[in-house]
């Protein structure tokens, strides 16, 4: 059974990482006095997303559903979050690489092209969706039903099998 204190700690860590992600997405364009600052911000942001993925998977492993071998059920329930997080990480890394590549020589130069603008829009939209789905998943994993056998679990299992 998941302890309340442990869950609170994990949830606060997840929210901290999400807040950092939102902060960098919002203000990274302002903090470009030197290219190194942006580089560090981007690296930490990508690592934060990676950490969040690791944490959510550790939470999955901790559930009774997973330990009972119903991995498929978990994936079925949270596939949106898993896929979106992976897509967001890919979009973030590609945008960061692209932007840093263009701005490395001169951080205050105008680097925008249509392609970069498109990638930027998709990355930022994915960030919002990732934030929403990740937050929802993290809070749903606080449900005690995931940590014990219940009628609900059996019903869900039957639904997935069909």
């Amino acid at each position: 059974m998941l302890q309340t204190s442990n869950y609170s700690l994990v949830l606060s860590l997840q929210f901290l990482l999400l807040s950092y992600d939102l902060f960098v997405n919002s203000f990274s364009e302002l903090l470009r006095m030197a290219p190194v600052i942006q580089l560090v911000l981007f690296i930490i942001q990508d690592i934060a997303v990676l950490f969040n993925i690791i944490i959510i998977f550790l939470m999955f492993f901790n559930t009774f559903v997973f330990q009972a071998g119903l991995v498929n059920l978990l994936f079925h329930k949270f596939k949106g979050t898993i896929i979106l997080t992976a897509v967001y990480l890919a979009l973030s890394i590609s945008l960061h690489v692209w932007v840093m590549n263009l701005r490395w020589k001169n951080s205050n130069s105008f680097v925008w092209t249509d392609g970069l603008q498109t990638l930027f829009v998709f990355q930022r939209l994915a960030a919002v969706l990732y934030c929403y789905f990740y937050k929802r998943t993290a809070m749903r994993l606080g449900d005690p039903r995931f940590y014990q056998d219940s009628l609900w679990l059996r019903k869900e299992f039957m639904q997935v099998r069909r």
């Binding site: 939102l22 902060f23 997405n25 919002s26 203000f27 364009e29 302002l30 949106g80 930022r124 960030a127 919002v128 934030c131 929403y132 789905f133 937050k135 929802r136």
Partner: peptide, 26 residues
């Protein structure tokens, strides 16, 4: 221009997430 753009994104992101929460967008 740019600070406002950044602030707008931050607030829009928060508001969108909050609105999605309210209708249970998932």
């Amino acid at each position: 221009a740019y600070p406002f753009q950044s602030l707008l994104y931050l607030l829009l992101a928060l508001s969108t997430i909050s609105a999605f929460d309210r209708i249970d967008f998932a």
